[in-house]
């Protein structure tokens, strides 16, 4: 009789939309502290494009971001893959394509953002300024959100 092998649970974003925190980052040619940022892991990232960073674009990326250390197991998604991010504060959403590796989730483990009684924990996605400003003011800096595949 075959014995069943223990298996890791599937990544949470394969089970449906996932809640997390969303922030924004600059990339591509830019001014100020962003001027040396570069075009990201995919080589296509620009602040004015509808793009985002995802913590699991490759083994090398995962070894840096480590969302699993915060209890979040996210699926491998590579350059160009599309996610839909919905701000829980406004209900506005934006669809973007992966252009970089990030955010570095494990450095902010346990962090929580709320809109009233609606909260989400851990940084799971970073949007470019063009994308973030579609769903929230850049001056908010960090927001709870829902992420799903587009």
């Amino acid at each position: 009789m075959a014995r069943s092998q223990p298996t890791d649970p599937p990544p949470i974003d394969l089970l449906g939309p996932v809640l997390g925190e969303v922030s924004w980052f600059c990339c591509g040619t830019a001014w100020g502290p962003c001027s040396s940022t570069g075009k990201g892991a995919c080589g296509t990232c620009n602040s004015g494009n509808m793009q985002h960073a995802w913590p699991n674009t490759s083994d090398a990326c995962w070894s840096i971001t480590r969302p699993d250390r915060c209890g979040d197991s996210l699926s491998r998604r590579t350059c160009g893959f599309r996610h839909k991010t919905t701000a829980l504060c406004s209900g506005a959403s934006v669809v973007t394509a992966i252009a970089d590796c990030g955010p570095q989730t494990d450095l902010f483990c346990g962090e929580r953002s709320c809109c009233g009684s609606t909260c989400a924990s851990n940084r799971l996605i970073d949007l470019t300024p063009a994308a973030y400003s579609k769903i929230a003011s850049l001056s908010t800096g960090l927001r709870p959100c829902e992420i799903s595949t587009a």
């Binding site: 494009n49 793009q51 701000a87 973007t96």
Partner: peptide, 20 residues
């Protein structure tokens, strides 16, 4: 926050947003 719920044209993911 409500201002960002405004309906605006969807932009092709990965491309520049002309409204930005």
């Amino acid at each position: 926050e409500a201002a960002f719920g405004a309906t605006s044209p969807q932009v092709e993911p990965g491309t520049p947003d002309p409204d930005f």
